[in-house]
């Protein structure tokens, strides 16, 4: 305890001196070392496991043990999800359809569903686990989440009715929109600052 305090203080003092010069040059720059207090309590990953619910899309890292298929998923969906999402996820009182839209992005009417939009199937597991059902999030077991994921994939024609979804099989599914994304490459416009004789703005002059 004592040695830790000494270490912290020496560290803080040195950082404070360094921080002064930095602040003089740029008063808004943060000088993290000068602010260090070391007040966090060390914790081991195992004790964060109940919070560690994220699943990484591309490789499915974080998918838990367990499994489920679309048949089991349908029964669960009818009981826990259809009231908002409609039968067969075709759209209900709280949300539009979660089925279809694959291939619609090259048309003028893009339909966004997990089937058309998610580039990686594990993201569907991740979202259901963290956020659904809306009224009782994080209440589903791993098996239930796999089964519901399997059901939504099946409704979108992306897996068979009896296909068992688990950490390996889910990550192996190739989603139609896998290569549908580009990373931010803006600025993509290069407007000029015209002051005189400019092209008039496109406007819709509304009806009176």
């Amino acid at each position: 305890m004592r040695s830790l305090e000494t270490v912290t203080m020496t560290f803080a003092t040195a950082a404070l001196l360094a921080g002064c010069a930095g602040n003089a040059a740029n008063p808004t720059a943060s000088s993290p070392h000068a602010r260090s207090m070391m007040l966090g309590t060390p914790i081991v990953e195992a004790d964060i496991s109940a919070w560690n619910i994220d699943v990484r899309g591309p490789d499915g890292q974080g998918l838990p043990p367990g499994s489920g298929n679309a048949r089991a998923g349908k029964a669960l969906f009818d009981a826990k999800c259809a009231s908002c999402h409609g039968a067969a996820a075709a759209g209900g009182p709280m949300f539009g359809t979660m089925v279809g839209g694959i291939g619609s992005f090259k048309t003028d009417k893009r339909l966004l569903t997990p089937g058309s939009m998610y580039p990686y199937a594990p993201a569907l597991f991740d979202y259901i686990r963290r956020a659904m059902p809306l009224t009782a999030p994080q209440s589903l077991s791993n098996d239930e989440t796999y089964a519901l994921t399997a059901y939504l994939l099946h409704l979108n024609g992306l897996s068979g009715e009896d296909a068992e979804m688990n950490a390996t099989s889910l990550a192996a599914i190739r989603m139609p929109n896998r290569d549908g994304f580009i990373v931010d490459d803006r600025p993509d416009t290069n407007a000029v600052r015209c002051m005189q004789d400019c092209r008039p703005l496109r406007t819709s002059v509304p009806a009176p």
């Binding site: 966004l112 993201a123 569907l124």
Partner: peptide, 26 residues
């Protein structure tokens, strides 16, 4: 690496020509 969660693929992305979507446009 990024996680590619629903909120960074199915939502908060920008439709681009050729049926693509721009992501991480922060």
């Amino acid at each position: 690496q990024p996680w590619h969660l629903r909120s960074e693929t199915a939502r908060y992305t920008d439709p681009m020509p050729d049926g693509k979507w721009r992501q991480f446009s922060f």
